[in-house]
Amino acid sequence: MLSSITKYLNAINGIALWPTIAFVFFFLFFLLMLWWVITTPKAELEHIANVPLADNEGSTNMNDRR
C-alpha cells in the first residue's frame, strides 16, 4: 500500500526544500499572530480571560469553608 503512494510522491522534485518552505510558512504565521496579539483591544482580551470566572460560582476555594 505504502509503495503505491510513494511511487508517485517519489517523482516530486526538490522535496528536500520542504522543511525550508514549511519553516517560512510557520514563521510568517507566527509574525501574523504576534501582530494580532499586539493590536487586539485590551478590553476584549480581558473579557475572554474572565470567562472561566464568570459562572456565578463565586470563590471556589476549599479554605472558604474551613
Binding site: V37, I38, L45, E46, A49, N50, P52, L53, S59, T60
Partner: peptide, 13 residues
C-alpha cells in the same frame, strides 16, 4: 489555576 486562585490568567496575550 485561575479558578483556584479566583483571578484571571496573568496574560491572555
Amino acid at each position: 489555576v485561575p479558578k483556584a486562585a479566583n483571578r484571571p490568567v496573568y496574560s491572555y496575550k
